[in-house]
Design a protein around this nucleic acid. Structure first.
Lengths: 149, 149
DNA sequence: CTCGGAATGTAGCCAAGGCTACATTCTGTT
DNA sequence: AACAGAATGTAGCCTTGGCTACATTCCGAG
């Protein structure tokens, strides 16, 4: 599991074991995607509602509550979240900062899609999957493109 | 497992069980990604080399040969490939047509990335992950954008 | 023709992410 | 205060996609 708690860029992945092709990269990057989604969502729920309850998280992600709770456990293990039984979920410093970076990236991806003419619905929907595969170089290019207008 | 053998668009996914949000969609789409990669690669190997051997596939995908062989088994179960022991892998009609669609989509995604200023290396690399999350609507928008120049 | 190394295949293990079923705790209404 | 129903948590199972270790088959040099 990549160490998602790092600062700086959004993709703090450890080196690929060897010369694994670009396929391997895409696959490895996939690992952190779920955690990123959870952290982003929890941050959203906390911001506009004050609390993040497992049931809400599960409903929003379209999974069973048990699945959400299990993943929240992983979040805790990874040092991204804290939660006492029956008391809701909160983010650590690391979790907050990851959430911020994920959110920023999400916005750039959606804006880029819209800018090239993707319909709003599709842009929002596809961005959710795409964003986890956007490298820093690509993200920077997107930002430049948007800045140019 | 989505039925990847269908014709028409590139995303022949069965309906989501309920109102699962866009997160769920992204997750579900993920299922077929690996098979798409395999089929695309096998098609490539067959085209410029005449044969697709498990070891080559494994090396190109950066996985152990056992993993490749296991996945080839899935390809067979899904009706996308055929293979007799020690005789290499071949694609069925369905496999070929999926490969063609995947390849076409890959090209559009890479071209779009390049068009907005993503460096070549990053474009090729990120496209591998991104392409599996590009809906038909988004793909069409990409094509339009590229056509406009 | 045979024999050794490479390729292929099999078995069994692991973690992630999903589920259902069941147990426990909380909480809002009476 | 008590209880019913909702929320939360636990247990156990499944599939995917990885891996290593071992077994088998193929094939090219001698």
């Amino acid at each position: 599991m990549p160490d998602l708690t790092m600062e700086t860029p959004i993709r703090p992945l450890p080196e690929e074991p060897t010369q694994a092709s670009r396929f391997g990269k895409a696959r490895t990057a996939q690992s952190g995607a779920l955690l990123e989604d959870y952290v982003e969502l929890i941050s959203d729920l906390l911001t506009d509602g004050g609390e993040a309850r497992p049931t809400d998280i599960a409903r929003r992600l379209g999974v069973a509550h048990a699945t959400a709770i299990k993943t929240i456990g992983r979040l805790k293990r990874e040092g991204l979240a804290v939660a006492k039984p029956y008391r809701g979920v909160f983010l650590t410093e690391a979790g907050e900062s990851l959430a911020a970076r994920v959110r920023a990236r999400h916005r750039v991806v959606v804006d880029l899609l819209l800018a090239v003419g993707v319909p709003f619905e599709a842009a929002e929907s596809d961005a959710e999957g795409i964003e986890h595969h956007v490298s820093d170089a690509t993200l920077a290019a997107f930002a430049r493109y948007l800045a140019r207008g």
